[in-house]
Write a protein that binds this DNA or RNA. Structure first.
Lengths: 213, 213
DNA sequence: GTCTATAGCTGGATAGAC
DNA sequence: GTCTATCCAGCTATAGAC
């Protein structure tokens, strides 16, 4: 696309400038709201001027897309980071907690990633990919607990999403729904295991001890 | 506040004009998004002009507040409408379904009522009141099922909120999470009943048969 | 690439005639 | 109460000098 692939340091310089702008955008989004900030604000926050912003991004939507991509990558990395707990059950608890914390600790990021709150904006499929990866990871954790159905995956995501949503909307900064994460997952597991019936208990144990795929 | 309380029909005329404006605002919010529409759009949609809008509302926020109040009233009425099903268990299912449908059938309304998505806007406590009433109603339905704890109420709201949230974000217009409402409530009830242990099973039965408060 | 300056619009809200 | 006409602030985005 650019003149050549040889001058890699130029690309790197450009990329780091882009990141500085995106970081400034995140600061504004967190302070003033995801939708409020203007390009002028952004330029000031980044210590440059408006036209310079346009030297790095074609439009405001392009900035949102970069923000989305960064957030999605952070999300995937955060979820994939090893869980230093024993047992598949505890893995699920840890996963749920990490998901919850990721969302609750940065509402603007949560809104951009998981709610469709920006008017004309839809993320590039490329920027969307990491989220899918994280979901696959949850699938694996569930499988380790002997839960395979597509519908149970949906139920699990709904459960955690609901706790997050209520926490953010009705007790921002508090822990009223955070405290319920473990109990909710316990409820979920009990439900799925009852559904499987007694016999599959053994095959589930097999999964836990042996297979990690 | 106004000249007198005698000329009630004048007040009524004024109120009906206000409602017409609010209705137009809802049409725009549903078509273009809760945040997109402008006072100019609104005036056109309502068949009047901008200054006329300001003859009935002091600001755009005042319009949002009227929208919120109307939506909250609709919500409370919708939830309180009698459920023609037998049994406390089925009451809970019906309640959850009605809540779900109320949210999923009008995303703009859901966003205004249950998410805090509008920049400087916070509803009047007066406009907020009906939502509290609906929550009290849920409390009663749970009590009829032998569930009293504050935390279980929170868990129930999180559960339904999560199903709604996922449905709206990831399968708008579909039924991927709608199909899980019954199962989710079943899971919830089983969980709460197990927690109570065997002895309180009787006292729960007492509640179901006897007390409605 | 970065600036100054500004175009071109659209927003909420208002003045003043009728 | 309703209109025409308009103010003014804010926005995204760009032109053109350096």
């Amino acid at each position: 696309m650019t003149k050549s692939t040889s001058s890699g340091w130029r690309e790197a310089r450009r990329e780091s400038a882009r990141e500085a702008i995106v970081d400034a955008a995140w600061r504004l989004a967190r302070d003033e709201g995801l939708l409020i900030w203007s390009i002028r604000d952004l330029a000031t926050q980044a210590g440059i001027t408006t036209p310079t912003v346009y030297a790095y991004f074609d439009s405001k939507h392009a900035i949102y897309d970069a923000m989305f991509g960064q957030a999605a990558t952070d999300f995937a990395e955060s979820m994939a980071r090893p869980y230093d707990v024993e047992g598949s059950r505890e893995q699920l608890y840890a996963f749920a907690h990490r998901f919850f914390d990721f969302c609750a600790s940065d509402v603007a990021r949560y809104q951009l990633l998981f709610q469709r709150t920006i008017p004309g904006f839809t993320p590039t499929t490329e920027a969307y990919a990491p989220s899918v990866r994280a979901l696959t990871h949850l699938k694996q954790v569930l499988a380790d607990n002997g839960i395979a159905g597509e519908e149970h995956l949906d139920l699990a995501t709904a459960l955690v999403a609901g706790l997050v949503s209520q926490q953010i909307s009705n007790d921002p900064g508090g822990d009223r729904w955070l405290r319920l994460v473990d109990e909710a997952m316990e409820m979920f597991l009990a439900h799925c295991q009852v559904l499987d019936g007694g016999r599959s208990l053994t095959s589930r144990t097999d999964l836990t001890t042996g297979v990690t795929r």
